[in-house]
Each structure stands twice: as structure tokens, then as C-alpha cells.
Simulated assay, not measured.
Amino acid sequence: METKINKLKEIDKTENPFKVPENYFAQFNEEIMNRLPEKEIVAPEPVSLWDRAKPWVYLAAMFVGLYITINFLMKAPGNDNLAENQVATQQTLSGLPGNTDNYWSTVQITEEEFYQYLEEQLIEDSYFDYMYHQYYLN
């Protein structure tokens, strides 16, 4: 064991024991490239028309499927004759008195009665007080 320690003491500590061959890093890239195997250059395959159109066809098929599914789910049972039901509804509405095409209600009041009603609602609900910051004593 002492002989190994003595041999370590004999090593000169001022000199670096590791040495790199001359021009090693200057030629490093060339040496690595020379050792690599040659790679064949493969020409890219042409993309067919179907491969280009495939995503668009799938997208269109998805939307058609979604449309059919929604129509199937929205169809209520017993509403097979939807057009007949719409015609019957139109006939029922047209039988009401007066022209109901432009009104949301069949109640007929004058403009003065309508404004009177609005004013009463404003006073009863105290909206008038909020709008004009005035308070009435009833």
C-alpha cells in the first residue's frame, strides 16, 4: 500500500497529465462527419388530391351529421304533420277579431288609456320619485 502512495508522490504536480493531440479540435467536425454513414436522399412523395381534400370532406360530413342529429332530437313525437299544424295555427289566429298581424295582444285600448296606465304604474311603484327626486304626500 505504501508503494502506491509513494508513486503518487512521485508524480509532478506542476505538469498536467492529460494531453490533447495537436489540431484535435480543429479537425473534430471533419472526423465526425467522415465516420458517419452516408445517408440516401429520398424524394418526397407527391400528395394526392384525396389526401388534400380529406379534412374538408370529414368536416362537411361532421356538420351534416350534427344537423341531422339536432333535427332528430328536436323533433317531438307526434309532430309528424308539422306543416298541417302550422296551417291550423294560422287559421285559428286569423279567426280572431281585428287584424292581429301587427299586435302582440288582442286588447284594444286608445293611446290616452295606455299613457294613463303607465302614469299610474309610475306613481304606484314610486318610479316617478326615483326619476325626478320628488316625493308626494298622499
Rank of each mutant, 00 (worst) to 15 (best):
W56R: 15
E15A: 06
Q134V: 15
L96V: 06
E111F: 15
G98E: 01
P55T: 00
Y115E: 02
Y115D: 03
Y115C: 05
G78F: 03
W56I: 12
L8C: 08
L66Q: 00
A53K: 10
T92I: 07
L8G: 05
F25E: 00
L49M: 14
Y117G: 02
S105G: 03
A43S: 04
H133F: 06
P77I: 00
D12K: 01
P21A: 00
V47I: 11
E124V: 07
F72Q: 15
V42W: 03
I109N: 03
D101K: 09
M74I: 13
E120K: 06
L73R: 06
N23L: 03
P97W: 00
V87Q: 06
Y127K: 05
N71G: 02
L36D: 00
E10Q: 11
A53Y: 13
E45M: 02
S48C: 02
E112N: 09
L137V: 07
N99Y: 05
T3P: 09
T110V: 01
L73P: 15
L93E: 04
D101A: 03
A26H: 07
Y127P: 05
T69R: 14
Y117W: 10
F72D: 15
E84M: 01
D129Y: 02
L118C: 07
A61W: 12
V42R: 05
I32P: 01
E30K: 08
Y58P: 13
L66K: 07
N23A: 04
Q108T: 14
G95Y: 05
T100K: 05
T100W: 08
R52G: 14
N16I: 12
D80M: 14
I11E: 00
K19F: 12
V20R: 01
Q116K: 10
A76H: 15
Y117V: 01
Y67M: 08
Y103V: 06
K13Q: 10
L118T: 06
D80I: 08
D129V: 01
Q108C: 13
A88C: 10
N71A: 07
M62E: 08
Y67E: 04
K19L: 12
K13Y: 12
L66G: 05
S126H: 03
L8H: 06
S126M: 07
T100E: 08
V87C: 03
E119N: 06
E120I: 04
K13F: 11
A43P: 06
E31Q: 13
P21I: 00
N138Y: 04
L137Y: 15
L122G: 06
N99C: 02
E10S: 08
F114W: 14
P77Q: 03
N81E: 12
V87T: 10
E15P: 11
E40C: 12
L66H: 00
N102A: 08
W104G: 02
T14S: 13
Q116M: 13
P37N: 02
V64D: 11
E120Y: 09
K75E: 14
N29A: 01
A88D: 09
E22H: 15
A83L: 10
Y135S: 13
T92S: 08
G95F: 04
V64G: 11
G78S: 06
A26Y: 03
L122Y: 10
D12M: 00
I68V: 14
E84P: 10
D125I: 04
E112M: 09
L36Y: 02
E22A: 10
